[in-house]
Design a binder for these strands. Structure first.
Lengths: 359, 359
DNA sequence: TTGAAAGCGCTAACAT
DNA sequence: ATGTTAGCGCTTTCAA
């Protein structure tokens, strides 16, 4: 008693079957495999169903078929703008294929990622694993239980789709080279980062080809604080060209050097990576490598759905999607061989790398 | 033949029951209502279950209980930084209560929102509806089918949790007033926005109390472009103090006026709303009203879970969570009665409000 | 405290 | 093309 509104109890295929004068299985077929039933009866059934307000019960269907039409998308940090477009790409492609996506945010925590995956695993048909914090071994473990594709990271034996990191940094270096910057500093990402490894490697190769010298500085944490730390270290041996591991690092770097009276791009040109939302908001607007994140997500889903539908997971080389350089205001002609530092000379700088990031 | 790895078939309560020498129902109780079974037998069952790698099947449980332990969180735009913390708050609180959250991004589209909700409805136990694009009537319709709580918007008859908009704008105006700004321009949000209505109302009340004049300018779309349009209009009758509907609008406004050679905060002080990620990244860093988004999300989930557990949805006044002003660099002492405009006088400005936003 | 048995709503052989 | 009939794996009376 004292009941609030009562939630209506839904009709089942049995109710519809009775009302339409057919067998329950015919009703089931009408909704699960149209075509397997006479179009006239089907129409009648659909009509009756509509009148009764029948809706197929996904749980019952899932139990019977062992398919939930749910896929999980795991990202390390929903807060990171990099994932916006990936999420959209995944959602769209999934919807198109008739899947609903369960978005899991692991918050950069190994523990959380495991727990969330644990929760999700039994109810999803497959997993898109974005930039995982877990070990390759753990990942393969999970891939044994459900179809999976790795995103932004190539995992051996697991279908993977990654952006063309090598080409991205190459374009960045090319751009800086054309503007006369040499040498160029690479503000490196986290040590454990697969992407950082790829980028640094790509940079070294490009360095040879383009005859532009490249120095590595890091590791840095992949955020604004990391950029600030990088700036401190860079002051020890400044270069007029800088390529950052990602846009956040680039932004942190720029703010830090600007704070020291160094102009961007008048004194240093810096290029970011990812082309996040904020890249166009900061001053100066950031020149950066745009990764096709939406395409990345879509490609991952296509592959995953294929697996779910029975395709053999192909453990071959990862699918590589193209990137492009977006030129904005943070890069310009090199001022000369070396950047002019206002305080250079008598200025004291920290002598340990990377500098602590609590500045 | 060509077979990929085969996914292991999972043991059921029957397997565990047999191995442990008990009835299936006892195994079920062990996991679904511990305490209803002798602790020794329970231990034994758990041990056997662990050995067999038994995991309870959520679909089967859902079918039997009609509870999925899933809740949906609907947001209009995952891309909007405002939702980061809300999402985190919801996820955390949900996890704590034993629920997994199905994140639905409606992309500002009524159609999408409906479709996604349609998909989600049958599989979730309840819904947290953030800043819906739908009409109150549609919302109530859905609330009839599943427990629901509205977020960031008060819907009559539906439990709602909202930030203290009135107090937020009051603090903003107070701050500007103390710095000597009067009158102050309010860069209004979308016409249909519930939050905008609340803020404007709060502003008028505060205006009376604080004796600071306030003008409304808008409606503007709630993004950077809207801020740019607002700046154009503001040029017609500039004020030294500006309060924006949200941070994005504030950022757009600032960039636009800076482009005209107007200094922030030297010529105009502007305060944003929301305290999004980027607010601390732009130059000057934005003074803004911080809404406790994580708390907002958590409160919504607590309410929702209570409803799911059988509490009567309370249609009373919305739960209001407190906000606070974060002072940064975009506000300062007023330069005088009116702002000095470099081009004021002979400068031509558009004469229709709001200005087209494709500038 | 435990067991036996009847569903939950749907799908999928197998028959007709 | 449609009907019959078992389940899918779990929960939940009802008995014992």
């Amino acid at each position: 008693m004292a009941s609030g509104q009562r939630r209506r109890i839904s009709p089942t295929i049995y109710d519809v079957a009775q009302a339409a004068g057919v067998a329950p299985s015919t009703v089931s077929r009408t909704f699960s495999r149209p075509g397997r039933v006479n179009s006239e009866t089907a129409d009648r059934i659909r009509k009756v169903a509509a009148e009764l307000g029948y809706r197929t019960n996904p749980m019952a269907r899932a139990l019977a078929t062992t398919h939930s039409s749910l896929i999980a998308l795991v990202v390390p940090d929903i807060t990171n703008p990099v994932y916006f477009e990936i999420i959209n790409g995944v959602q769209d492609e999934a919807a198109e294929a008739g899947y609903t996506v369960l978005l899991v945010d692991s918050r950069e925590s190994d523990k959380r990622e495991r727990e969330a995956l644990e929760r999700a695993l039994p109810i999803v048909d497959g997993i898109v694993l974005g930039t995982s914090r877990m070990s390759d071994a753990s990942i393969r473990m999970i891939a044994k239980q459900k179809p999976m594709v790795a995103l932004n990271r190539a995992v051996r034996e697991i279908p993977s789709v990654v952006p063309d990191n090598a080409r991205g940094v190459r374009r960045a270096l090319e751009h800086l080279g054309e503007l006369g910057h040499d040498p160029v500093t690479y503000l490196a990402g986290p040590e454990a980062s697969w992407a950082d490894g790829m980028r640094w490697r790509g940079l070294r190769e490009a360095s040879l080809e383009l005859s532009v010298h490249v120095r590595r500085l890091g590791p840095l944490s992949p955020n604004v604080a990391g950029g600030v730390a990088g700036a401190k270290a860079w002051m020890l041996a400044p270069t007029s060209g800088v390529i950052a591991y990602n846009d956040l690092v680039a932004i942190g770097f720029i703010r830090a050097v600007q704070g020291r009276g160094i102009g961007v791009p008048s004194d240093v040109s810096v290029v970011g990576y990812d082309n996040i939302f904020a890249a166009d908001l900061v001053s100066p607007a950031l020149t950066t490598v745009a990764t096709p994140r939406r395409a990345l997500g879509a490609a991952a889903v296509r592959n995953l759905v294929a697996q779910i539908k029975g395709a053999h997971p192909r453990g071959g080389p990862p699918v590589v999607v193209p990137v492009k350089l977006v030129e904005r205001a943070s890069t310009a002609e090199a001022p000369g061989a070396a950047v002019r530092l206002p305080h250079s000379g008598g200025h004291t700088v920290p002598d340990i790398l990377p500098a602590p990031e609590n500045a």
